[in-house]
Every structure is written in C-alpha cells, then in structure tokens.
Computed example of a mutant assay.
Amino acid sequence: MDLAAALATHRLVAIVRGDDPDAALRTVLALAEEGIELIEVSLASPEALCVIERARQALGPDRPLGAGTVLTAEDARAAHRAGADFAVTPGLGDGVGAAQELGMPVLAGVLTPTEVIAARALGVAALKVFPIAQAGGAAYLKALRGPFPDAPFVPVGGIDEAAARACLVAGAIAVGVGSPLVGDAADGGSIAALRERARTFLAVAGEATR
C-alpha cells in the first residue's frame, strides 16, 4: 500500500490498544464501519496478533490494517504473518528495516531533528512525532517543520479533538489518535460511544482536507 498517500487522503489513524481481545476486535470493526480507513492494533495489547488476524479476515484483503508498537524484527514478521500491511513504531528499532523488507510501509517514531534525519535516510513512509503532547504539541510540530517543511509528520500521543485540529492546521499530514478516540471500548466499554467519538474525529479530519 502507499501509506503516505493514504495518510494524506484520510488524515486520521485510529490506535487500538486494550486488554480484552474480543472487545479490541469489536472496536476495530466499529471504527471501520464508521469510515475510519487507517487503523492500527498495538502489539502491546494482549493477543494483538490474533486481533489483527481476525480483523483481517473480517475486513477482507483490501482494507488497510496496521500493527503498532513494532519494536523488533520478529514483531514485524509476526505482524506480517497475521495480516498487517503497514507497521507503526515508537522509534527507529530493528522493526523498521524488517517491515520494509517484507513490503510493509512504516510510520516510524521520531521526536528530535536528528531522528527525523535518520528516519528519512531509512526511507520510511511517514514520521510519527511521539509523544507530541509532552514535546509541546502543535507549537513543537510547527517548529520541527521549519527545517523539514515537506516531511510527512503524524503527531501521536495525547491527541484529543482540539489537538488534532491544531496539529493538522500546523501542517501534519495526519494525526494518530488513541485513547481520546477509543476510550474504554477496547476494554469492553460502549461501542455506541466509540461510534460518536469516531464521527467527531472524522469531522476534524474532513475539515483538514477542505
């Protein structure tokens, strides 16, 4: 898949992390039904690989599905076997190269200018600025874009509705949203409430594309 193009088109990545695998699967499917095209399942969740495999079967072969928290080469290989077609990493570990060797584009975690340069040298699809809230939010993103005006930045970490809007205005290609979107749905919480939050974030992403 062309991850950079998908990020530029959809402007939103949903990050699913939870302790209940069945609830996590329901969360993925509900997000997809609401129209969120880019969803990642964090490998930090229990039975995450099983969730990815079941989600792939339910969604079919053409819907983008990512594996998050890819740290090692084995993480990348296991995610690929489970059916993930893109990888998201918190940093520049061995999982980046392994995922690329398997044909999985990578949204690679960076924070500093040095890490941005290193990630771009690796040929990653896009740059996950993490954790953005702790680094200064949209103001930090704007500063980072000074030396890297064309870099495909995706801020992640503490992105609520207001932060999503601010980061997109500041030049993010997309935003990655976890708990402000997913809430407790992946732990067995309300799917109806999840759907409402999904519509809110989709509206923010839609504003950014106009």
Rank of each mutant, 00 (worst) to 15 (best):
R54H: 12
V154A: 08
K142H: 14
V51N: 01
A73N: 10
E34L: 00
L3Q: 05
P64I: 07
T27I: 06
A58L: 09
T89K: 00
P155D: 03
P155V: 09
R165T: 12
G97E: 14
G66N: 05
A30N: 11
L7F: 07
E115N: 08
R54T: 08
G176P: 03
A55S: 15
L12R: 06
A174N: 01
G91K: 07
P180K: 04
V110K: 00
L202M: 13
L194H: 09
A23L: 03
A138N: 05
A30S: 14
R11I: 04
L3R: 04
P131T: 07
P113T: 07
T69A: 08
V70A: 11
M1N: 06
K142C: 11
H80A: 15
A44N: 15
M104A: 11
Q100C: 10
T89V: 05
A192P: 10
A99C: 10
L107C: 08
G137H: 01
I159E: 07
A151V: 00
E196D: 14
E33S: 10
A151P: 01
P90K: 03
E74N: 11
T9G: 00
A73R: 13
F201W: 10
A185L: 02
T209D: 02
A133T: 01
L49H: 11
G189Q: 04
E47L: 14
A24N: 03
L181V: 01
A138L: 05
A118T: 14
T112A: 07
V154E: 07
A30C: 13
D20Q: 04
A205N: 12
K142M: 13
L194T: 07
L49V: 12
A14R: 02
I132F: 04
L107P: 05
V13I: 14
V88T: 02
L3G: 01
S45T: 12
M1E: 01
A118M: 12
L168R: 02
L7T: 09
T72D: 12
R56V: 06
V41Q: 04
L111Q: 06
A6F: 00
V182R: 01
V41Y: 03
A205S: 13
K142Q: 15
G183M: 00
L127E: 08
L12E: 02
A55H: 11
A79M: 13
L92T: 06
T89R: 01
V70M: 10
G183Y: 02
